[in-house]
């Protein structure tokens, strides 16, 4: 299972970011780093307008590099192919950030641990998918070979 992005549909409204932050905090989303992020290409000042929005989020790779790189066995792949992590085991070594080709793992600066998409573990539909008003995010349940 993973969240599949339909880039052609995304309008860059960032509803997914807010929903993600809300879903991963007990109260206010302020200061909680969202694990899904809407990025733009050209943002250098003085240059042309920001380009099309681009959603950066975990792809739950079939053979995840972050799992290979994790020295504390915090990031793991479960039987359903979801790439999850055990926050308590994370030591903040950032090896996973060094190897994720999608730039989809972030530092939670307050906890000094990583934050990544956990598919809203325990929720039927991830918050970002639910929040997306233009159906740019959808659930992909296809299985891939390791």
């Amino acid at each position: 299972m993973k969240v599949k992005v339909r880039p052609d549909r995304c309008i860059g409204c960032k509803s997914c970011e807010i929903a993600c932050a809300m879903s991963h905090s007990s109260g206010s989303p302020l200061g909680i780093a969202p694990r899904i992020r809407v990025k733009h290409g050209q943002v250098v000042r003085g240059q042309r307008e920001p380009s099309k929005p681009y959603v950066v989020t975990c792809r739950h790779c079939a053979k995840p590099k972050c799992v290979e790189a994790c020295i504390s066995n915090a990031i793991y792949q479960d039987a359903d192919g979801r790439v999850l992590y055990d926050r308590d085991r994370c030591v903040g070594c950032w090896m996973c950030i060094m190897v994720c080709p999608f730039g989809a793992i972030h530092r939670d600066l307050r906890a000094k641990k990583v934050a990544k998409c956990d598919l809203c573990d325990g929720r039927e539909t991830p918050a970002c998918v639910q929040a997306c008003k233009v159906d740019a995010l959808e659930i992909d349940n296809s299985r891939r070979e390791q």
Binding site: K39, G41, V43, S51, K52, Y54, C61, A62, K63, P101
Partner: peptide, 21 residues
């Protein structure tokens, strides 16, 4: 060189991140 570099910049340049899956 910028800290906010992201795959968005690659996508804009027409480069897809392909990990063979």
């Amino acid at each position: 060189l910028r800290p906010d570099f992201s795959p968005a910049r690659l996508a804009e340049a027409g480069i897809e991140i392909d990990i063979g899956e």
